[in-house]
Design a protein around this nucleic acid. Structure first.
Lengths: 346, 346
DNA sequence: GTGAAAGCGCTAACAC
DNA sequence: GTGTTAGCGCTTTCAC
């Protein structure tokens, strides 16, 4: 064993050793038809003996495209956020599909507020000749970026762009529907004064959660009480602040639906500081199912998006080639845990 | 605007347009010397007009190496763990260095328990001709994997291998020292019965934390009390279980030092269930500074490894070329928060 | 079924 | 300072 002293074997070396032409070797390596079984075996043996590994650069150059998938997502200024779970789950799904299809994953967080992101993105995509690009939310709903990618002509898929999309491919989840389902859950527990803490609205898909909340109220015959809707910014602290506001109301809500789990955690914290018990006095729900949701006390009722599966699907669409599916929806799941319970009777 | 209808400009097109040879264009693009200012400008203008972007595949083929850095880490079976924060922070550091050096980052989680990881890794590294590889813990202390990478002859850096390393480069932190410092902190608060909950010992660097604990006891003139050392497995639940055991003791510890934050969170949970108040009756500390550490109540005293900076440094070492630094240590930081306080007097 | 030869777009010696 | 030319290791077209 030890260091690789001699130079690496090329397709020529293999061809020579197997007494065939390089084209035949190429056929074997790429699993193309029209190779006699016996020839194939000879070649395979030569490959094994020589430890031959095709050179991706050469292959990419000849093929005019790489075996790289780019995963592009928002680079949070404060990286250290629960958003990390979000990102990891997307990566995980993308990686699954990549492995299966013999591709590799390039990650490329970027700051959409920066000048020249579009150009940088184009540069990356074209220079590296990415085989495809997955655009994560909230970038997936930013026209400038989408356009920049379109201009490269490289296949791409958007994740949860948060609105209906004209021509290009995307995979989403049923944010709106599932949010309404959450209201159903609350309503079925007897809640009538259900508050909502909204999130960051540059993230269109997060906006859908509010629409779902309203739809849920509507279909349960509940009316929207303006003072029960308060704006958050997706952060723990904004959730806590909103909770203090809601709990200070003369007519308190009996349930709070938060547009994400971080804010829900903030609500839980604020409530417990005020001696308000969950879920006895107030029910709390989130959205995202972050790791902490299962470690909180009480464990948080929330909604889980199939992020990994969505991204996996996205990469597969990319590598499929056929423009068959333009849009795919993978439903989210209600995770009913301990932070929701029957409405208190006053 | 719009789609790229015509074929992409190559270096020839640029050369022709600027009335120079391709070599000159190459010089300009690669910022090589020996180009007259005026010539350079002509070329740059042609590049701009033609929207020329060098093709990485071609460049990589000619240079015999890519512009890709591989970040290789353990692919947890249950991915959905606080470890996600760990991974994200390493990625962030690696990305910072990559961007600065005009490289791209390939992520490659892998399962070291799987057969053939070594071969797969070699295959990736050689096929893609990675410019360099960063190996994260605990993979960085697995001989089989390290060897596989060595055999490719590709430059690599190990992160926190957890032990002194012979010849190859690595960047680590002062796990042991900082753990001893944590004991100093506890001792200075008057604690004498300090428990330790150990972690997963396939992760050598985590093992160092225990050594640091002992060193801390020693230098504070405290003796190691065997019944106060209990084995955990890095999980929240194992922390909670250990806590129940420790709190059941006739002579309880007044402080618990956990080898990671998840276990510390478990301890906090178990203690509060048992009505033991933190830090009044017992102090708790962790290691890692996961996101939750700052959102717990009380906020957790812990240790923060400079993971991002470590990985950033690693990538820079890779791209530096000169084998100057073989080993680099970036110190961790004590984060003293609310979960530690003066030892109770009985 | 198999092979010969012409690229793919760039870098790197070396010549001028 | 600048240009010529020969690769880099593969895929692809087309002939056999």
């Amino acid at each position: 064993m030890g260091q690789q002293t001699t130079t690496r074997a090329t397709i020529f070396d293999v061809a020579q050793r197997a007494s065939v032409s390089i084209k035949t070797v190429s056929r074997v390596v790429n699993r193309e038809p029209n190779v006699r079984d016996k020839t194939r075996q000879k070649v395979e043996q030569a490959i094994a003996e020589l430890q031959y590994r095709p050179d991706s650069s050469a292959r990419n150059l000849a093929r005019q495209r790489s075996h790289l998938i780019g995963l592009i997502y928002d680079d949070p200024a404060a990286y250290e956020l629960p958003s990390s779970g979000y990102i990891i789950r997307m990566q995980q799904g993308a990686l699954r599909a990549c492995r299966e299809r013999m591709h590799e994953l390039l990650i490329h967080p970027c700051n959409p507020r920066e000048r020249g992101v579009g150009a940088t993105l184009r540069n990356l995509i074209e220079s590296a000749r990415l085989a495809g690009v997955v655009l994560a939310p909230p970038l997936s709903n930013m026209t400038r970026l989408v356009r920049a990618i379109q201009e490269t002509g490289t296949p791409f898929v958007r994740i949860s762009p948060g609105l209906k999309v004209r021509n290009d491919r995307c995979v989403a989840t049923n944010d709106l529907e599932i949010s309404a389902d959450m209201v159903d859950h609350l309503a079925s527990l007897g809640h009538e004064r259900i508050a909502f803490i909204s999130g960051d609205d540059t993230h269109l898909a997060v906006g859908n959660r509010y629409d779902g909340y309203r739809e849920g109220l509507r279909r349960n015959g509940l009316k929207l009480i303006p003072e029960l809707v308060v704006a958050g910014d997706n952060s723990f602290d904004s959730g806590a602040a909103a909770a203090r506001q809601l709990l200070g109301l003369d007519a308190r809500p009996t349930a709070v639906f938060c547009a994400n789990d971080d804010m829900a955690a903030g609500v839980v914290r604020a409530a417990s500081k005020l001696g308000v018990s969950i879920p006895d006095q107030i029910s709390v729900t989130g959205f995202d199912d972050i790791v902490m949701a299962r470690q909180m006390d009480p464990r948080l009722t929330t909604i889980r998006q199939p992020l990994a599966r969505m991204t996996e699907r996205a990469v597969k669409m990319l590598l499929q080639g056929d423009g068959s599916d333009l849009f795919e929806c993978i439903p989210a799941e209600l995770k009913i845990r301990e932070s929701t319970g029957p409405a208190p009777r006053y």
